[in-house]
Amino acid sequence: MEFKDYYQVLGVSREATAEEIKKAFRKLARKYHPDVSKEPDAEARMKELNEAHAVLSDPEKRAAYDQLGRGYQPGQEFRPPPDWDAGFEFSGRGFSPGEAADFSDFFAELFGRMGGARGFGAGQRANFEARGEDHHAKVLLDLEDAFTGATRQISLRSPRSDAQGRVTLVTRTLNVRIPQGVYAGQIIRLAGQGAPGIGGAPPGDLLLEVRFRPHPRFRAHGRDLHLGLPIAPWEAALGTVLPVELPQGSVKVRIPRGAQSGQELRVRGKGIPGGQGGAAGDLLLEIRVVLPPAETPRARELYETMARELAFDPRQLGRG
């Protein structure tokens, strides 16, 4: 395990005041905020910042880290001595065990193994019973999975207490059956897979939020599927029947005569299938009339014939 220099992460000196640490964190949190940052590694940097801030903004953790890290360089091989944290009391404010599960192994090694009242505020009292917390995670699926259902392996890092009440971060791998008909934003509940209960109370649930990877052709809104459909001018003008490939199977769609770019055709029930009794979504096709290039003499001749014989001026449309 490599030593992490939290001061370097925040760009402050070891003598920085609490105010300087707060200011440096906020400046960088603004720069690397995943919602707005253009930096490619914004999310990873934000996690690092949060971790460094969780330690350096907490006087007890900072004191322990300073004592332990004396003489270490960033990236240097590091192993904390046993009971290194004796004499320190950690209140664990600011970040919950769930959030701290996102932090590095280095953090988990130092501050994750804090027992009872010294943990992340997760103190345990005798004769105290509480249902375990529900945990939340995202599961990233392909759109096709919503049509067929899928089994996905999900790795989660979550805090666990041992018999002595010491908290450690463990990685669990779950095989989860994703039912047919799921859509983005929907929650799959896995009963009993959340945090363990305290004092014999039942464990919490794991709530998996469904997300789709971007699809090269389709876009999903709920169970509705949107697709841009390029068609030739003669198909638009004369009407036609076109096959449309779906994530699973295909459908024949009638393009009405006189179709125009921007018009939307709705094919009922051909979106994501209904799941657990729900209704299937629709397929929404947005017409896009694409002109063939006038790159050959013959193509130019055809366009010139149309120009001559159709007397068509699109700028006059809708002018009455």
């Binding site: 945990h135 039912p179 929907q186 799959i188 897979q193």
Partner: peptide, 20 residues
Amino acid sequence: ILIGSLIEDSWLTIEQVAAA
């Protein structure tokens, strides 16, 4: 293989959101 249940219409109670 764990089989989950879909939460109806994806509405969550305050407690569920708070925990998540």
